[in-house]
Write a protein that binds this DNA or RNA. Structure first.
Lengths: 130, 130
DNA sequence: ATAAAAAATTCAAGTCATTTGCAAAAATAT
DNA sequence: ATATTTTTGCAAATGACTTGAATTTTTTAT
């Protein structure tokens, strides 16, 4: 989906941000995006505002890696995947959804050790469906 | 594991916190714990410090629900489970690990709708294993 | 195109969960 | 008990993120 298709005004900061996310792998936090597109290109507050707006429109999605940073990546439902993050160097690898048959085996095959995962489900419970 | 077994000094705030977590279901954030054991019982900073220490010692574990709060619950490896959080009322239900065969079905059987999950893996990658 | 209207950006100040420095108090070791 | 170590309380700091309001840019209407 493009910025215009999302019903948003097309601005330089927005083009820069989407462009950066489209070309680079791994979810990024606001500051990383800011640094990468150039801190002189726009204010950090603009990055935050653009990211919220993009997420609201479904252009990008949030990722939580268990630290105090919110990260974002392009939202492509066709390419659903999970993440494998090194606890040490924070490197991010994508993991396909085939993991359901033997999660830890798959990951240890990749050479990782001390594998953990964080899995939380979200939904609307019966009481809240009106 | 007890506070003493973890090699820590036994103090009132620590006993209060562990006691609260042992008796109540659902991960709790620092402020919830503080309110529940009584704000006059100790400083909020003490709660934060105790929780970090407990986690380091493996007495409790962190949970991330995708907001900006860190929650904790007793770490009992025998009772490994995941969480199902209502997006609306934030109610937390435990989900056993049987979910691997048909995640969404299981959850919709419980009457939930708009089910999503957040799954991230953590490990030490080959490069970081020395 | 051009002007008016709408939306986005900037900058500064404000939040809010969490952290930290340091002196005082409590717990543990001797 | 007394010394040593650890923990706590309080206040101040941090750091990611948000927000208010004036200005600039983009869009819409002419």
């Amino acid at each position: 989906m493009s910025i215009k298709e999302a019903g948003l005004s097309v601005t330089k900061p927005r083009l820069n941000i989407l462009n950066f996310l489209n070309k680079n792998h791994g979810p990024f936090c606001a500051e990383e995006i800011h640094n990468n597109i150039g801190v002189d290109q726009c204010d950090l507050a603009t990055i935050y505002r653009c990211l919220s707006t993009f997420e609201l429109k479904g252009l990008i999605k949030k990722c939580y890696f268990g630290d105090d940073l919110v990260r974002y990546e392009i939202n492509d439902p066709e390419k659903h995947h999970h993440h494998l993050i090194c606890k040490n160097c924070k490197k991010v690898e994508n993991v396909g959804s085939c993991f359901l048959k033997g999660v830890d085996k798959l990951l240890s095959d990749k050479g990782y050790i001390k594998i953990e995962h964080n899995l939380e489900f979200f939904g609307i419970c019966p009481n809240c469906q009106h």
